[in-house]
Amino acid sequence: MTVANLAALDGMRALTCPEPEREIGGVYIGDLLSWVMGRAKADDAWITIMTNINVVAVAALADTACIVLAEGVAPEQAVLDTAGAKGVNILQCGRPIYETALLLHENL
C-alpha cells in the first residue's frame, strides 16, 4: 500500500505528500522521539500526536514512509512547509490513536 492509497482512505487526509508513491512496510506508534528512532523501521507509517518541527527530522532520518497525526492534531504551517521540502509525507486522521492503528491494520 502506498502513502497515497492510505491518504485516500475514509478518515485520512494528506497534509503534505511530497512522496505519494512511497510503499508502507509496517506501522510504528510512539511520541517519544528517541524511542521512535530506536524502534521504528524504515518504511513504517509512524502514528503520533507530536507536531513540533523535530518530528520532521526524525521521520527523515529514520526513513519512515509517512507520519500519521492521530486524534486530529494539526501542526503549524511551517512544519508542513519543512516536511514538504524534505520529502516527508504527513497525513492526518481524526480518529483516536487506537482506531487510527486499526484503520492501518485493516488496510495494509
Partner: peptide
C-alpha cells in the same frame, strides 16, 4: 518536545 526519554 518528545526528547529526554533516556534513549539517546
Amino acid at each position: 518536545l518528545g526528547f529526554g526519554a533516556g534513549m539517546g
